[in-house]
Protein backbone atom coordinates (compact mmCIF):
# COMPACT_ATOMS: atom_id res chain seq x y z
CA UNK A 1 0.00 0.00 0.00
CA UNK A 2 1.25 3.48 -0.90
CA UNK A 3 1.05 5.49 2.34
CA UNK A 4 0.86 8.96 0.75
CA UNK A 5 -2.75 8.44 -0.38
CA UNK A 6 -5.89 8.48 1.71
CA UNK A 7 -7.29 4.95 2.01
CA UNK A 8 -8.78 3.93 -1.37
CA UNK A 9 -7.45 7.07 -3.09
CA UNK A 10 -10.49 9.37 -2.70
CA UNK A 11 -10.70 11.98 0.05
CA UNK A 12 -13.32 11.55 2.77
CA UNK A 13 -15.58 14.38 1.53
CA UNK A 14 -15.82 12.71 -1.88
CA UNK A 15 -16.54 9.33 -0.32
CA UNK A 16 -19.33 10.84 1.80
CA UNK A 17 -20.85 12.46 -1.30
CA UNK A 18 -20.71 9.10 -3.11
CA UNK A 19 -22.15 7.27 -0.10
CA UNK A 20 -25.13 9.64 0.17
CA UNK A 21 -25.77 9.21 -3.56
CA UNK A 22 -25.50 5.41 -3.29
CA UNK A 23 -28.06 5.28 -0.47
CA UNK A 24 -30.53 7.33 -2.56
CA UNK A 25 -29.78 5.12 -5.57
CA UNK A 26 -30.70 2.01 -3.58
CA UNK A 27 -33.83 3.72 -2.23
CA UNK A 28 -35.01 4.55 -5.77
CA UNK A 29 -34.17 1.39 -7.78
CA UNK A 30 -33.08 2.08 -11.36
CA UNK A 31 -33.13 5.89 -11.00
CA UNK A 32 -29.94 7.68 -12.08
CA UNK A 33 -28.56 9.80 -9.22
CA UNK A 34 -26.25 12.65 -10.33
CA UNK A 35 -22.94 12.78 -8.45
CA UNK A 36 -19.78 14.87 -8.54
CA UNK A 37 -17.55 12.55 -10.53
CA UNK A 38 -13.88 13.16 -9.78
CA UNK A 39 -10.90 13.04 -12.06
CA UNK A 40 -9.21 9.69 -11.54
CA UNK A 41 -5.71 8.60 -12.46
CA UNK A 42 -7.04 6.99 -15.62
CA UNK A 43 -9.23 8.51 -18.34
CA UNK A 44 -13.02 8.53 -18.48
CA UNK A 45 -14.11 5.44 -20.36
CA UNK A 46 -11.77 3.13 -18.43
CA UNK A 47 -14.13 2.46 -15.58
CA UNK A 48 -13.83 5.65 -13.52
CA UNK A 49 -17.47 5.41 -12.42
CA UNK A 50 -17.05 1.86 -11.18
CA UNK A 51 -13.75 2.77 -9.51
CA UNK A 52 -15.31 5.66 -7.60
CA UNK A 53 -18.19 3.46 -6.40
CA UNK A 54 -15.72 0.75 -5.36
CA UNK A 55 -13.56 3.33 -3.55
CA UNK A 56 -16.58 4.55 -1.57
CA UNK A 57 -17.42 0.98 -0.52
CA UNK A 58 -14.02 -0.54 0.08
CA UNK A 59 -12.78 -1.44 3.56
CA UNK A 60 -9.67 -3.24 4.76
CA UNK A 61 -11.57 -6.53 5.19
CA UNK A 62 -12.83 -6.66 1.60
CA UNK A 63 -11.60 -9.11 -0.99
CA UNK A 64 -11.77 -7.48 -4.42
CA UNK A 65 -12.23 -9.15 -7.79
CA UNK A 66 -12.17 -7.15 -11.03
CA UNK A 67 -13.29 -8.53 -14.38
CA UNK A 68 -13.32 -7.13 -17.89
CA UNK A 69 -15.68 -8.95 -20.27
CA UNK A 70 -15.59 -11.87 -17.84
CA UNK A 71 -11.79 -12.12 -17.75
CA UNK A 72 -9.56 -11.41 -14.76
CA UNK A 73 -6.39 -11.16 -16.82
CA UNK A 74 -7.13 -8.38 -19.31
CA UNK A 75 -5.55 -4.91 -19.17
CA UNK A 76 -8.46 -2.99 -17.62
CA UNK A 77 -9.09 -5.64 -14.94
CA UNK A 78 -5.43 -6.06 -14.01
CA UNK A 79 -4.88 -2.29 -13.78
CA UNK A 80 -7.90 -1.62 -11.58
CA UNK A 81 -7.09 -4.58 -9.31
CA UNK A 82 -3.51 -3.34 -8.90
CA UNK A 83 -4.73 0.21 -8.34
CA UNK A 84 -6.78 -0.82 -5.32
CA UNK A 85 -4.12 -3.19 -4.02
CA UNK A 86 -1.80 -0.19 -4.08
CA UNK A 87 -3.99 2.63 -2.73
CA UNK A 88 -6.08 0.55 -0.28
CA UNK A 89 -3.90 -2.46 0.42
CA UNK A 90 -6.91 -4.76 0.08
CA UNK A 91 -6.71 -8.45 -0.72
CA UNK A 92 -7.57 -9.30 -4.32
CA UNK A 93 -8.73 -12.52 -5.90
CA UNK A 94 -9.63 -13.95 -9.28
CA UNK A 95 -12.15 -16.36 -7.77
CA UNK A 96 -15.78 -15.30 -7.75
CA UNK A 97 -16.64 -17.30 -4.61
CA UNK A 98 -13.85 -15.66 -2.56
CA UNK A 99 -14.73 -12.05 -3.44
CA UNK A 100 -16.80 -9.73 -1.24
CA UNK A 101 -16.76 -6.99 -3.86
CA UNK A 102 -16.66 -7.55 -7.62
CA UNK A 103 -16.12 -4.72 -10.06
CA UNK A 104 -17.10 -5.66 -13.58
CA UNK A 105 -16.95 -4.35 -17.09
CA UNK A 106 -19.69 -5.79 -19.30
CA UNK A 107 -20.34 -9.21 -17.74
CA UNK A 108 -21.99 -10.82 -14.74
CA UNK A 109 -20.02 -13.85 -13.45
CA UNK A 110 -21.42 -17.28 -14.37
CA UNK A 111 -21.03 -18.46 -10.76
CA UNK A 112 -24.24 -17.44 -8.90
CA UNK A 113 -23.65 -14.53 -6.53
CA UNK A 114 -24.46 -14.56 -2.81
CA UNK A 115 -26.21 -12.15 -0.46
CA UNK A 116 -22.91 -11.08 1.08
CA UNK A 117 -21.41 -9.99 -2.25
CA UNK A 118 -21.74 -6.63 -4.01
CA UNK A 119 -21.38 -6.27 -7.77
CA UNK A 120 -20.17 -2.89 -9.15
CA UNK A 121 -20.70 -2.23 -12.87
CA UNK A 122 -18.69 0.17 -15.03
CA UNK A 123 -21.18 2.06 -17.17
CA UNK A 124 -20.32 4.09 -20.29
CA UNK A 125 -23.84 5.49 -20.95
CA UNK A 126 -26.31 5.25 -18.05
CA UNK A 127 -29.26 6.70 -20.00
CA UNK A 128 -31.04 3.94 -21.97
CA UNK A 129 -32.97 6.56 -23.95
CA UNK A 130 -29.91 8.62 -24.94
CA UNK A 131 -29.54 7.30 -28.50
CA UNK A 132 -33.25 8.01 -29.03
CA UNK A 133 -33.41 11.39 -27.28
CA UNK A 134 -30.17 13.41 -26.90
CA UNK A 135 -31.55 16.08 -24.52
CA UNK A 136 -31.00 15.34 -20.84
CA UNK A 137 -33.87 17.64 -19.78
CA UNK A 138 -36.18 15.65 -22.04
CA UNK A 139 -35.05 12.17 -20.89
CA UNK A 140 -35.45 13.29 -17.25
CA UNK A 141 -39.03 14.27 -18.06
CA UNK A 142 -39.68 10.94 -19.77
CA UNK A 143 -38.41 9.12 -16.67
CA UNK A 144 -40.51 11.39 -14.41
CA UNK A 145 -43.61 10.49 -16.43
CA UNK A 146 -42.62 6.85 -16.86
CA UNK A 147 -43.08 7.40 -20.61
CA UNK A 148 -41.04 4.71 -22.35
CA UNK A 149 -42.92 4.58 -25.65
CA UNK A 150 -39.75 5.63 -27.52
CA UNK A 151 -37.95 2.46 -26.47
CA UNK A 152 -40.89 0.24 -27.39
CA UNK A 153 -40.99 1.86 -30.83
CA UNK A 154 -37.28 1.19 -31.25
CA UNK A 155 -37.71 -2.48 -30.37
CA UNK A 156 -40.74 -2.69 -32.65
CA UNK A 157 -38.73 -1.21 -35.53
CA UNK A 158 -36.11 -3.93 -34.98
CA UNK A 159 -38.86 -6.53 -35.41
CA UNK A 160 -40.32 -4.80 -38.48
CA UNK A 161 -36.87 -4.59 -40.09
CA UNK A 162 -35.11 -7.81 -39.01
CA UNK A 163 -37.94 -10.04 -37.82
CA UNK A 164 -36.56 -10.09 -34.28
CA UNK A 165 -35.27 -7.68 -31.61
CA UNK A 166 -31.70 -7.10 -32.78
CA UNK A 167 -30.38 -5.54 -29.54
CA UNK A 168 -27.93 -8.09 -28.16
CA UNK A 169 -26.16 -6.13 -25.41
CA UNK A 170 -27.12 -3.20 -23.14
CA UNK A 171 -30.65 -4.57 -23.49
CA UNK A 172 -33.03 -2.19 -21.67
CA UNK A 173 -34.71 -3.35 -18.47
CA UNK A 174 -37.54 -2.06 -16.31
CA UNK A 175 -36.55 -2.07 -12.63
CA UNK A 176 -39.27 -2.70 -10.03
CA UNK A 177 -41.86 -1.89 -12.69
CA UNK A 178 -40.91 1.80 -12.68
CA UNK A 179 -37.59 3.03 -14.11
CA UNK A 180 -36.25 2.10 -17.54
CA UNK A 181 -32.60 1.30 -16.86
CA UNK A 182 -29.46 0.42 -18.76
CA UNK A 183 -27.97 -2.83 -17.46
CA UNK A 184 -24.61 -1.49 -18.82
CA UNK A 185 -23.28 -3.20 -21.97
CA UNK A 186 -23.61 -6.72 -20.60
CA UNK A 187 -24.78 -9.27 -23.21
CA UNK A 188 -28.53 -9.86 -22.97
CA UNK A 189 -27.47 -13.39 -21.97
CA UNK A 190 -26.77 -11.89 -18.51
CA UNK A 191 -30.08 -9.99 -18.17
CA UNK A 192 -31.91 -12.85 -16.39
CA UNK A 193 -29.20 -12.76 -13.66
CA UNK A 194 -30.31 -9.20 -12.77
CA UNK A 195 -33.80 -10.34 -11.83
CA UNK A 196 -34.21 -10.99 -8.09
CA UNK A 197 -30.45 -11.31 -7.61
CA UNK A 198 -29.39 -12.14 -4.03
CA UNK A 199 -26.47 -9.68 -4.40
CA UNK A 200 -26.76 -5.88 -4.36
CA UNK A 201 -25.82 -4.38 -7.75
CA UNK A 202 -24.41 -0.86 -8.09
CA UNK A 203 -23.69 1.00 -11.33
CA UNK A 204 -21.26 3.91 -11.80
CA UNK A 205 -20.83 6.12 -14.87
CA UNK A 206 -17.84 8.44 -14.37
CA UNK A 207 -17.96 10.54 -17.52
CA UNK A 208 -21.74 10.90 -17.35
CA UNK A 209 -21.61 11.53 -13.57
CA UNK A 210 -24.48 9.23 -12.70
CA UNK A 211 -24.85 6.24 -10.45
CA UNK A 212 -27.74 3.88 -9.88
CA UNK A 213 -28.58 0.61 -8.18
CA UNK A 214 -30.63 -2.54 -8.35
CA UNK A 215 -31.31 -3.78 -4.81
CA UNK A 216 -31.38 -7.53 -4.09
CA UNK A 217 -34.57 -9.48 -4.84
CA UNK A 218 -35.90 -6.72 -7.09
CA UNK A 219 -38.01 -7.42 -10.15
CA UNK A 220 -35.98 -6.68 -13.29
CA UNK A 221 -37.86 -7.18 -16.51
CA UNK A 222 -36.22 -7.14 -19.96
CA UNK A 223 -38.51 -5.26 -22.33
CA UNK A 224 -40.34 -7.44 -24.86
CA UNK A 225 -43.66 -7.94 -26.60
CA UNK A 226 -46.22 -10.70 -25.96
CA UNK A 227 -45.65 -12.15 -29.44
CA UNK A 228 -41.87 -11.50 -29.34
CA UNK A 229 -40.80 -12.64 -25.87
CA UNK A 230 -37.33 -11.89 -24.51
CA UNK A 231 -34.77 -14.52 -25.53
CA UNK A 232 -31.08 -14.96 -24.72
CA UNK A 233 -28.27 -15.97 -27.06
CA UNK A 234 -27.65 -19.65 -27.74
CA UNK A 235 -24.68 -21.36 -29.33
CA UNK A 236 -24.28 -24.44 -31.45
CA UNK A 237 -20.88 -24.86 -29.78
CA UNK A 238 -19.68 -25.76 -26.33
CA UNK A 239 -16.63 -24.20 -24.67
CA UNK A 240 -13.62 -25.91 -26.26
CA UNK A 241 -11.60 -25.64 -23.04
CA UNK A 242 -14.05 -26.77 -20.34
CA UNK A 243 -16.94 -28.20 -22.35
CA UNK A 244 -19.59 -25.98 -20.76
CA UNK A 245 -22.81 -25.68 -22.72
CA UNK A 246 -24.32 -23.11 -20.35
CA UNK A 247 -21.88 -20.22 -20.25
CA UNK A 248 -21.48 -17.15 -22.45
CA UNK A 249 -18.97 -17.96 -25.22
CA UNK A 250 -16.38 -15.76 -26.95
CA UNK A 251 -15.35 -16.58 -30.50
CA UNK A 252 -11.56 -16.42 -30.71
CA UNK A 253 -9.57 -16.38 -33.96
CA UNK A 254 -6.62 -18.75 -33.46
CA UNK A 255 -4.64 -18.61 -36.72
CA UNK A 256 -4.51 -16.75 -40.03
CA UNK A 257 -6.30 -19.47 -42.00
CA UNK A 258 -9.77 -18.78 -40.60
CA UNK A 259 -9.41 -21.14 -37.65
CA UNK A 260 -11.49 -20.15 -34.64
CA UNK A 261 -12.63 -21.57 -31.36
CA UNK A 262 -15.39 -20.85 -28.85
CA UNK A 263 -14.38 -20.43 -25.21
CA UNK A 264 -16.05 -19.22 -22.00
CA UNK A 265 -15.78 -15.47 -21.50
CA UNK A 266 -15.72 -16.02 -17.70
CA UNK A 267 -12.12 -17.13 -17.10
CA UNK A 268 -12.62 -18.06 -13.43
CA UNK A 269 -15.64 -20.27 -14.24
CA UNK A 270 -13.81 -21.95 -17.14
CA UNK A 271 -10.59 -22.49 -15.19
CA UNK A 272 -12.40 -23.97 -12.20
CA UNK A 273 -14.33 -26.39 -14.40
CA UNK A 274 -11.10 -27.54 -16.05
CA UNK A 275 -9.43 -28.07 -12.67
CA UNK A 276 -12.43 -30.07 -11.46
CA UNK A 277 -12.42 -32.17 -14.63
CA UNK A 278 -8.74 -33.07 -14.08
CA UNK A 279 -9.26 -34.02 -10.46
Amino acid sequence: MTPSYNFAFLDEDTKRMLRRALLKAVAIPGYQVPFGSREMPLPYGWGTGGIQVTAALLGPDDVLKVIDQGADDTTNAVNIRRFFARVAGVATTERTVEASLIQTRHRIPETPLREDQILVFQVPEPEPLRTLEPREAETRTLHALGDYGLMHVKLYEDIAQYGHIATSYDYPVLVDGRFLTSPSPIPKFDNPKLDRSPALMLFGAGREKRLYAIPPYTRVESLAFDDHPFEIQQWEHRCELCGSGESYLDEVVVDDRGGRMFVCSDTDYCGRRRTEAQA
Partner: peptide, 20 residues
Protein backbone atom coordinates in the same frame (compact mmCIF):
# COMPACT_ATOMS: atom_id res chain seq x y z
CA UNK B 1 -10.86 6.27 13.54
CA UNK B 2 -12.81 8.52 11.14
CA UNK B 3 -11.84 6.77 7.86
CA UNK B 4 -12.53 3.17 8.85
CA UNK B 5 -15.32 3.76 11.37
CA UNK B 6 -17.35 5.68 8.80
CA UNK B 7 -16.58 3.08 6.11
CA UNK B 8 -17.83 0.23 8.31
CA UNK B 9 -20.89 2.21 9.35
CA UNK B 10 -21.68 3.06 5.73
CA UNK B 11 -21.52 -0.57 4.65
CA UNK B 12 -24.11 -1.46 7.31
CA UNK B 13 -26.31 1.46 6.24
CA UNK B 14 -26.05 0.38 2.60
CA UNK B 15 -27.06 -3.18 3.45
CA UNK B 16 -29.82 -1.86 5.72
CA UNK B 17 -31.21 0.20 2.83
CA UNK B 18 -30.78 -2.68 0.35
CA UNK B 19 -32.46 -5.20 2.68
CA UNK B 20 -35.19 -3.16 4.38
Amino acid sequence: DPVFDSQRTFRELLQAMARP
